[in-house]
């Protein structure tokens, strides 16, 4: 990220944005209120729920607690992962298993799962639990989250 005073360049979902905000504004609020990118959700503001998860250079990051001034690479939000017309494998699996109930946590769940499967394309239950237990779901969709991660992994492996 290049900074000139409070003017910052931010690359989100492949597009360059210039924002003029405080360096300590969390990335989440820059995305949501400055850029109108609302896929990442505000749930807790303290990295306890994971609803705000985005990727920075492919790494899952809780955008609610990352000051925009610390963003070290290109940001991908769920809107950049896939779209209704061009679904990412994780999203397709989420649809297949009808994971979502209220759906509010699912952007974060999906972003965490997508980053995870990049490094572990064939996870067992233990690995899935390690990877996604920091994403809180109040509706109780966890059983389906587990199934969908496995389906997504198989899709990504081309099985």
């Amino acid at each position: 990220m290049n900074e000139t005073g409070n003017h910052m360049q931010l690359k989100v979902n492949g597009k360059e944005h210039e924002v003029e905000v405080e360096e300590d504004m969390p990335l989440l609020w820059v995305l949501r209120d400055e850029l109108g990118i609302t896929g990442p959700k505000y749930g807790c503001g303290i990295t306890a729920c994971g609803a705000c998860t985005v990727h920075i250079d492919g790494m899952a990051i809780r955008s609610c607690s990352m000051p925009v001034g610390d963003v070290f690479g290109e940001v991908t939000t769920i809107e950049g992962l896939g779209t209704p017309d061009a679904l990412h494998a994780v999203q397709a699996a989420w649809i297949e298993h009808q994971v979502a109930q209220c759906g509010y946590c699912q952007s974060g769940q999906i972003m965490a799962a997508a980053a995870f499967l990049e490094v572990n394309p064939d996870p067992d239950d233990e690995a899935i639990d390690r990877a996604l237990s920091a994403n809180l779901c109040r509706c109780g969709t966890y059983v389906r989250v587990r199934e969908a991660v496995k389906t997504a992994a198989a899709k990504l492996r081309g099985v």
Partner: peptide, 18 residues
């Protein structure tokens, strides 16, 4: 198939906060 399942799996569902 839930009518909202695609929106809720792609970050495009619009909640009040959005």
């Amino acid at each position: 198939r839930r009518l909202d399942i695609v929106e809720k799996s792609t970050g495009t569902a619009e909640y009040g906060i959005d």
